[in-house]
Structures are given as C-alpha cells and as structure tokens.
Amino acid sequence: MFRIKVPRYWRHKDFRYRLNAWKCNHCGETHFFQPLICRKCRSRDFSRVTLPESGKLLAYTVVRSPPEGFEAQSPYIIGFIELDDGTRILGQLTDCYPEELKQGMKVEATLRKIREDQEDKIIAYCYKFRPAI
C-alpha cells in the first residue's frame, strides 16, 4: 500500500506549490529544496527565489508502468522543461496528449493533484506543466 510521508510533503510545499526555491548567493546554483550546503560550491549562504512559471518543453516521455502511488493517473507524461530563467526542471505534463507535444513548445506551471495516500487519504498537490494557454 502506497503511503505519503506527510512531514516531508509539508516541508516541500513552498517548492511544490509555488516553485519557491533557494539560490546560492556565492555561485548562483538553484536548489529546489532547502539545502544545508551548496552542492556546487559548498557555500552555506542562500536566498529565496521564485522560479518563473513559464518555460519551454525540452523533452518528454510517456510513463505507462508507473511507480507505486502513481497508478491512478497512468499513463502520464513526464517533461523536461527549461524555465524562462534557464532553470531546468522535471515535471508531469497535464491537460495534453502525447501527440500534441512538440519540442520547444511553451508550457506553464499549474497546481494539480499528483497522488493520494491510499490509507490516510492525504492528497499531495504539486506543480505540473501544461501547454501555455
């Protein structure tokens, strides 16, 4: 049975809901979740940044054999996206079918349900990307 780790889901909500991330003040590296030290330059000095909600689709793949906990929305599409500020990010694509997707097309972030705990029923919401409207 698939379970969601509630404290971790809660800790990550700034990024999952709003793309609020951390930027290293020393080397500029973007960290999605609060880091202790920068993976690139070992600095401990960070600022909060909100990543842009729009970007372009670099690549995608259709997931037909989902990992546990993701069955309810299968098949679904995972995209590799370059946001307008150059940040590259993985995310599910939504409101689209694979045949509608083109490399380089504009996409925008939206909040969606990503999975539900099968026992406690808590809902995990997260950013996904959809073709720009």
């Binding site: 309810a72 929305q73 599910q92 939504t94 409101d95 939206t110 909040l111 969606r112 349900k113 990503i114 809902i123 919401y125 996904k128």
Partner: peptide, 13 residues
C-alpha cells in the same frame, strides 16, 4: 475535470 483536478486545483487556476 481532469484526473488530477479537484475543487482546490480549479480554485487555484
């Protein structure tokens, strides 16, 4: 609604 939508996600939209 899509499979990943509910009242909360549509309210946010």
């Amino acid at each position: 609604a899509g499979l990943d939508e509910d009242t909360v996600t549509m309210a946010v939209e």
